[in-house]
Design a protein around this nucleic acid. Structure first.
Length: 423
RNA sequence: CGGGAUGUAGUAUACCGGUAGUACGUCUGUUUUGGGAACAGAUAGACUGGGUUCGAUUCCCAGCAUCCCGACCA
C-alpha cells in the first residue's frame, strides 16, 4: 500500500448529507466518507479508502491463520452444479439463496455462496495418505447470496468478501486440538482489529454433528442477534440455544447473564465427514486402512467486520478507526495556503512517508478550517496533525488523537517518535 | 417469502390536470481561512411502461426500485 496520499488527488469526496436510502450507521458514514459506493441493495463497491481498510483486515486475518499453518488459495466464484448435487445442495429446497445462471448453451452454473464442495472435490486429488494430513486451506473470496432481504449496509449484503477456511484431520483428537487453536486465532484476530473487548465467543446451535457451533459476536445495537453474556468467563450464549439445559451444560448461571444485541463477525464449527463422505475424501493410515477425513470450517465476513468496527466505535462526528485497520495512521491537515504553510506541510508529508508512516494529506486549498476538521472527524484516522500559521509560529505540528478533544503542538522529532510504526 | 411504507435535482422539500419553484449541496471565479465562511455566476429533477384525457409529474393500473418489521441466514 502506498504510504501517502494527497487528498486533492483522491477521486472520492466526502459529503455532508447521507444518501436518503441508507439508514444504518455503517453505510451512512462509509458512504459520506467515500469508503464505499452502493451499486444496488446489498451490493457495494469498495473505494480507495475503503479498500485500504478491507486489505488491512485481510492481512491481519492472513497473518493469524498462517500462524497455524493454513495455506491460502483462491477458488472460483463460478460453480459446477454437479459437485453440489452430490450433497443435494444444488436443490432449491435445501439451499434457497443460490444465484444460478447458465452458459450460452444452457448448461447451468452457480455463483458460489460457499466453497466446501469444490474444495473437498479438488483435495481428493491431493490427499491420499495420513502423511498428507493435517491440512488447512483458506481463501478470501467473494460470496454471492441471494438474500431475500439485504439490510444494514455492508453488514448483510448479497455479494461480500469472506475468509473461509477448512481444516482436515485424521483423528478426533487432532481435530479437537486444532479447533481449540482456531478459537485463539479468532480471538487474536478480533483483538487486533480493535473490537476484542466487545467480542464474545458465543455458543450457538450446533447444526448436525456437534452440540454447539461457536460464533464470535460483537456487541452493537446494529446487531441481528441477541446473546446472553457472562462477563466473568467472557463467553456468551446465543438466544437460539438459550435454555436451562444449555446453561447447566456450560456451567453458567442465568442471573449473571446480560442480554445484548450483537452481530456475528465469525463462526467456526465441526463438519466431521459431512463432505468427505460424499466426495470420498479419505486417507490410508499406517496399517493401510482407509478412513474418511475429519473436517472443520472457519468463516469471517471481512466486509461485515469492517462495518461492525464502524458501528461499534464511531461517534456522532464520524468514524473512529483503530490504528491497526485505519486507511492511514495520520491525517495531515494544511490550514491556509500561503507559501510558508504549503512548504512546511509538504515537508512534513514527505518526512512522514520517508519514516514509513501512512499519511493522508489534506492539501486541498480554499476550504475553511472547519470543513477540514469536520472531514478529518468523519474519515476517522487515529491521529490528526495540523500545519498552520499558528503551528509554524510555535515551531511544530499540532497533533491530536481522533478520540481526544484537544491537541498539542510538538516538534518533528516528537511527532516521528509518536507515530513510529509498531509503536 | 409474509407484512408495511416511499418514489419530484446529490439532499430536504413546494406547487400543479396546462411540462416544475425554493433551500442546502456540487461546479467556476473573487475575497476569505482554527470547527462545515461571504459574494457572484452556473449545474441539476417528476422511477419505468400502459391507460383515461385535447393535454398526465399530477388521476387509474401494472411493473421496477429502495427502506423498515418479521421469517430465513445451511
Amino acid at each position: 500500500m502506498t504510504k501517502g496520499t494527497r487528498q486533492s488527488q483522491l477521486f472520492t469526496k466526502t459529503r455532508k448529507d447521507a444518501p436518503a436510502d441508507e439508514v444504518s450507521k455503517n453505510a451512512e458514514l462509509l458512504t459520506r466518507g467515500g469508503f464505499i459506493h452502493k451499486e444496488m441493495a446489498g451490493v457495494y463497491t469498495y473505494l480507495p479508502l475503503g479498500l485500504r481498510v478491507l486489505k488491512k483486515i485481510e492481512n491481519i486475518i492472513r497473518d493469524e491463520v498462517n500462524s497455524v499453518g493454513a495455506q491460502e488459495v483462491s477458488m472460483t466464484a463460478l460453480q459446477n452444479p454437479e459437485l453440489w448435487k452430490k450433497t443435494d445442495r444444488w436443490n432449491d429446497e435445501v439451499v434457497d439463496n443460490w444465484f444460478k445462471t447458465k452458459l450460452k448453451n444452457d448448461t447451468e452454473l452457480g455463483l458460489a455462496f460457499s466453497h466446501e464442495e469444490p474444495l473437498v472435490n479438488m483435495l481428493t486429488n491431493f490427499i491420499s495418505s495420513y502423511k498428507d494430513l493435517p491440512l488447512s486451506v483458506y481463501q478470501f473470496q467473494t460470496k454471492f447470496r441471494n438474500e431475500l432481504r439485504a439490510k444494514s449496509g455492508i453488514l448483510r449484503g448479497r455479494e461480500f468478501l469472506m475468509k473461509d477456511m477448512y481444516s482436515f484431520n485424521t483423528t478426533q483428537e487432532d481435530f479437537d486440538s486444532f479447533y481449540e487453536k482456531m478459537k485463539i486465532v479468532y480471538k487474536n484476530i478480533f483483538q487486533k482489529v480493535g473490537i476484542g473487548h466487545i467480542t464474545y465467543l458465543t455458543f450457538a446451535s450446533g447444526g448436525i454433528f456437534s452440540k454447539y457451533s461457536h460464533e464470535f459476536q460483537t456487541l452493537t445495537s446494529a446487531g441481528e442477534d441477541t446473546i446472553y453474556v457472562d462477563e466473568a468467563t467472557s463467553i456468551a450464549v446465543n438466544q437460539e440455544v438459550f435454555n436451562d439445559e444449555v446453561l447447566a451444560n456450560l456451567n453458567l448461571e442465568k442471573e449473571k447473564l446480560v442480554e445484548h444485541k450483537a452481530i456475528e463477525v465469525g463462526n467456526i464449527f465441526e463438519l466431521k465427514t459431512k463432505f468427505s463422505k460424499p466426495f470420498d475424501l479419505s486417507y490410508v493410515d499406517e496399517k493401510g486402512e482407509k478412513h474418511e477425513v475429519l473436517m472443520g470450517c472457519y468463516g469471517i465476513g471481512v466486509g461485515r467486520l469492517m462495518g461492525t468496527v464502524v458501528e461499534a466505535l464511531a461517534d456522532d462526528k464520524g468514524i473512529i478507526w483503530p490504528e491497526s485497520i485505519a486507511p492511514f495512521k495520520v491525517h495531515l491537515l494544511m490550514l491556509g495556503d500561503d507559501e510558508e504553510v504549503k512548504k512546511r506541510a509538504d515537508e512534513v508529508f514527505e518526512t512522514l512517508q520517508k519514516n514509513n508512516i501512512e499519511v493522508l494529506f489534506d492539501d486541498r486549498v480554499g476550504l475553511s478550517a472547519g470543513e477540514k476538521f469536520a472531514d478529518a472527524d468523519l474519515l476517522g484516522m487515529p491521529y490528526r496533525a495540523v500545519i498552520s500559521a499558528r503551528s509554524i509560529k510555535e515551531d511544530g505540528v499540532e497533533i491530536k488523537k481522533r478520540n481526544e478533544e484537544k491537541g498539542k503542538v510538538i516538534n518533528m522529532e516528537e511527532l516521528l517518535k509518536l507515530l513510529a510504526p509498531n509503536h
